[in-house]
Amino acid sequence: MNIPVKPVSTVELSKADFVSKQTVRWCPGCGDYSILANVQKVMPELNIPRENIVFVSGIGCSSRFPYYMNTYGLHTIHGRAPAFATGLKVARPDLSVWIVTGDGDGLSIGGNQLLHMLRRNLDVNVLLFNNRIYGLTKGQYSPTSEQGKVTKSTPFGSPDMPLNPMLFALSAGATFIARTFDVDAKGMQEIFKEAAKHKGTSFVEIYQNCNIFNDGTFSAIYERSVREDRILRLKHGKPFIFGKEQNKGIRLNGLKPEVVDLRDGVNENELLVHDQYSRDRILANLLSGFDYPDFPVPMGIFRQVENSTYEEKIEEQIKSQIEKKGVGNLEKLLRGNHAWTN
């Protein structure tokens, strides 16, 4: 048995080929529209036959995504998209599998499934739409909502500490971790393409605005007028420099990172330099902790390392067992080792 080769598309496809007939039913102004459009835009560039692409989702606003993609799709049950995708990808390593989930679906009800899929390094792509709210159930706080968040279910403020999705993915051993945001078309496209190319689980957190129940939750970070001062665009091999004037940087002071002003005589050599291919998790861990207002919020690829994938290991075992024992013979198997005749 050969390990299936991922087929390459021989037909020229366009964005329109990836638009399904189903009317899109998100609220007007929702950040999901832009994510959908950019995924559809990127798809033809991946050179994967359309019939070999599967979008798998759970439950929530973002999880309606597969219905709008003219590919194969499974809209599953709440939180379990990673488990459905695991079965699918192990059964069919030749497919390009994309999981669309949200902060509630992926990190609350489905935390366990996401954790174990990341740990196994299944070769799939995860797009986690983080809007820090439950939208489909009409506005309760989510596991990424800030502490004290006032919602319908927490009229006096949420007592929960929020979960950091990047630290979650990192501690599960994710081999590709990236963040982007719903109004950055260029950034999204670049990351989606890299995610698709990566062998192993690609985990992409997308800051997404819910204009109905949590409008402006990320405005302080990515609103156009302040954006360049509050986000850090990651580029492999480049020092951590940000700001409208590109005058701010981040360096280590002992074990602690600190923001410095390059105009204060700080030399660029002193700044931290991005290394997304580093096998240890130290830098990615540091980046995952950066948050507004103390630090700029990193956007881009935090970590990208090679490792074996779950389904590849299974295929290897099958291959080596066949080499060792030959293709299984049912008659022999049924007879077992201690048959007798009456």
């Binding site: 379990r80 079965g87 499934q113």
Partner: peptide, 20 residues
């Protein structure tokens, strides 16, 4: 697959059935 829990065992089975 030794799944992470019973829900994942069932879910991954369905996912594999979708895969044929």
């Amino acid at each position: 697959i030794q799944a992470e829990d019973e829900i994942a065992a069932m879910s991954s089975s369905i996912g594999s059935a979708f895969g044929g």
